[in-house]
């Protein structure tokens, strides 16, 4: 189980990094989301998965059943998913807007904040 999850995580990380480096706006955003999934799995793994007993106290008991899975990493992952989801939404809107404005969706088009220098020794003047 542990080995399988580790291999899965490393494949997801590889996919995420590949998307990140593609130089295309939407792939960049999706790549970060994919990487986020891999990280969530890493946190999930710290609960040492294997047990299938949910961490729920049955009616009539006051303690967890023996061998119940650790609930804390799941709570952490849930929090991370919520935050990551909000940021993914935000960045998708941002990327969509940028792609619409400049009619291309690659990162090389993002020169408005860093114009190419026209002078040999001094940086370009930023008008705003």
């Amino acid at each position: 189980m542990g080995l399988m999850l580790a291999i899965t995580i490393s494949i997801i990380v590889a996919v995420g990094v590949l998307l990140l480096l593609s130089g295309e706006l939407f792939r960049l955003v999706i790549g970060l989301a994919v990487l986020g999934t891999a990280v969530n799995l890493v946190v999930f793994m710290t609960a040492r998965p294997g047990s299938l007993t949910p961490p729920v106290i049955e009616p009539g008991f006051t303690t967890l059943p023996a061998g119940a899975v650790n609930a804390l990493p799941q709570a952490l992952v849930l929090t991370a998913i919520v935050i990551g989801f909000a940021l993914l939404c935000f960045s998708l809107v941002l990327a969509a807007w940028l792609a619409q404005r400049q009619r291309r969706a690659d990162v090389d088009g993002l020169r408005a904040t860093e114009p190419a220098p026209t002078d040999a020794v001094k940086p370009a003047i930023l008008e705003d």
Partner: peptide, 15 residues
């Protein structure tokens, strides 16, 4: 546009 660009760069690295 420059704000959105700056935000995207900031977002990608910070994320």
């Amino acid at each position: 546009q420059r704000h959105a660009e700056a935000a995207l760069k900031y977002f990608a690295v910070s994320m």
